[in-house]
Structure formats: C-alpha cells, structure tokens
Write a protein that binds this DNA or RNA. Structure first.
Lengths: 199, 199
DNA sequence: CCTACCGATCGGTAGG
DNA sequence: CCTACCGATCGGTAGG
C-alpha cells in the first residue's frame, strides 16, 4: 500500500537498460529517461532514489543471471566437453535474452561506486574460476588435450561467449543454442581439416 | 610557425585516450583532461577545436592501425592457417600496443556524430570481410574443414582477438605473439584430446 | 596559456 | 506525478 506500483519500476529499469546501452550511462540524462516513460524528470524520483541506483540494479541483475545460469551446472556429472557446450549455451543465452543489460554490464561497470564495483569484479573472478575449473577437469579426465594452458583456454572460451553482445541479434535465424553449438564444436574440434582420413 | 607545437597535441591525445578509456568519454570533462596536463580547461582550445575532435582522432587512429596491420597481409601467398595465425598476431598486437585507444574504440564509437560513426561502421565491415575471405580461402584450399560456417567462424576469431582489450596486460609474461600463437593453435587444432593416436 | 565568463544542462529536491 | 527550482558543472569563447 505504501509501496509504489511494482511494474512502473520495472518499466523504468527496462527503459534505462535500453538508453544506457545505446547512449551510455553518462550520456543519458534523467530527463531523457523520463521522456521515454512520458513523465517529467523529477517524477522519476518517486520511484527510484538515484541514477546510480538504476545502474547498480541493472548490473546486479545481469550478474545474478550469469550466476544462476552457470552455477547450477557446476556439480553436474557431465563429461567436460558436454559441460563446456552447455555452459556456453547458457552463457550466450543470458547475453541474448538481455542484450541491453548485458551491454550495460560490459561497458558501464567501471562507473560504479567502489562497493558495487568490487562486487562486479568479484563476479568476474568467479566466472573465470568456473571456466578454469571446467577446463582443468577436462584435462584431468583426458577429454581435453594435456598441454592446454588453463588460463588462456578460459580466456578463449570467455571471448567467444562474451563478445556475442556486440554482434548477436535476437530474433534472427540463429538462436543461442545454435550459436553455442557451433562455437563449441569449432573450439572442441578445431578449424583445421582432418589430415586426409580415408580409411 | 603559426601551428601550435606538435608534441603538445599528441600529449593531449594520449591523456584523452587514457581518461576516455578509464572513465568513458562523457564522464571525462575537459577540465579533468586539462588538469592532467597542468593547464586550465579553456587552454585546451588553443590546441584542439572540440571534445569530439579528440574522440574522432582517437578512433580514427585506432582504425588506421588495424587497417595497416591487416591489409598488407591480404595478398600474401601464405597457406590459410599460417595467414590466420599472422592476422591474429597483428590484430592482437594493435590491441596490446594501444590498450587505451582500443578500449575507446570499442566502447565509445557509438557517441560519434553520424559521419564519423558511419566511417567506423564501414571499418568494422571491412575487417569482418577480411576474416571471412581468409576463412573462405582456407576452406577452398582444403586447409580448413569443408563444413565451416564462414560468418560464425569469423565471429569466433574476432571474439578472440578483440576481447583481448578486456584482459590483456602489457608488460606481463605474455607478448602479443604468445597470445596469438596459443589462441590460433587452440582454434586450429581444437581443445579435444586426440582419440588415442598410438601408432 | 590564463582569467573570467557564457548559456545550457545536469542530478536531485520541495511542496503540493 | 507535476511545477518550479537548487547549486554544480558542463563545453566552449573572448580578450588578453
């Protein structure tokens, strides 16, 4: 009863995600945002307490989605190649389903105040660790090649799934599953033609 | 004689690259920039004509570097796998040698005015085309697997070389050559262990 | 390269 | 959710 209507706040967050991703956080004014929602600048503050609160909410929401997508996978008893493929699918799906907030997440986290900034940095480390463990597991179990540099391999995988925010277009011919399938297959089997394997 | 000293302008561009990459274009004020160089805000305009001119210069300079690095490779008579490896090396080297302007290039190009914006978009397309041709060549010559999706393969390669701007640290143990070598080798040969190839 | 300043716009608030 | 407003800061200029 004393709380403002919930949907309105979500509308504000959605509009903010879109504007922040298109123009950047600092280049978006509160009046721009209010205009999108058909209200005056000052009226926003009936629903939120500050501009930075919006950024924090957007970034936290994105973090949580990555977290939830990946960490339910952590304990599952899958061979490393299948697990990598599934992790890439889930990771790309989060990006694809949240193009705006993913873009904000990747571009604007540097503008957060120290506490929120530290939280994001921590999240990044956790995701890194997830992929490194996954690759280590694969090497240990003999699914991946023995000589792999764990860190570099993780960077390569992360490049593929993260960079999708720059080129992926939702609603196109390829779903997140297709992209992940193709990327994972190329990564696992390599681009090189098999050396004339005529039996 | 009527021109302002050249080095000063380069100092301004260097500082601007650093500040724009750390804080973002819109979050950096001309007074911040002037302060870095030990002068007053208004004094900058003895050397430059506008803030956007700085952004345009930084982005153009980055574009030119990518261009020069890759397009001298275009006609060279190398097998596709060697050419891919060399292209990745040069691409990563440009990123590594210009971490600040590369970051500005990837993050701030959306804030350019229409003409400069169109130029950057055009550049992106050209680089895309370069990698697609390279991969097509490889498939045609039988160096790469026949079934490869050209577009997706190019995206995968571009992910690896572009995303380096987020994690690479110049002066560390790995030079651009090492990174490219490792990434290219993983991409070409795949992560999967060979299926028990005891002869 | 500085001092002093311009109009515009910013995030946010008071009071209703 | 609006009107009206706050102090601060913005990019840029005039005149020296």
């Amino acid at each position: 009863m004393t709380e403002p209507a919930k949907p309105r706040r979500e509308q504000i967050l959605d509009s903010a995600s879109r504007l922040f991703s298109e123009r950047g956080y600092h280049a978006t004014s509160m009046r721009d945002l209010a205009g999108e929602l058909g209200m005056q600048g000052g009226s926003l503050y009936a629903h939120i307490s500050s501009k930075e609160e919006l950024l924090i909410d957007i970034v936290n929401q994105a973090s949580r989605q990555f977290d939830e997508a990946l960490f339910t996978l952590r304990g599952e008893p899958l061979p490393a190649d299948a697990k990598l493929k599934e992790a890439m699918f889930r990771h790309i799906r989060v990006v694809a389903d949240n193009m705006d907030s993913a873009t904000v997440f990747f571009h604007e986290w540097k503008h957060l105040s120290p506490e929120a900034y530290a939280r994001v940095t921590g999240w990044r480390d956790t995701i890194d660790a997830f992929y490194r463990e996954l690759i280590e597991q694969g090497v240990r179990e003999g699914v991946f090649r023995p000589g792999l540099d764990i860190k570099m391999t993780a960077y390569l995988v992360l490049s593929a799934v993260n960079w999708a925010y720059t080129w992926y277009r939702p609603g196109g011919a390829l779903g997140p599953r297709d992209v992940a399938e193709q990327f994972a297959e190329m990564l696992l089997s390599g681009l090189r033609a098999a050396p004339a394997a005529t039996p």
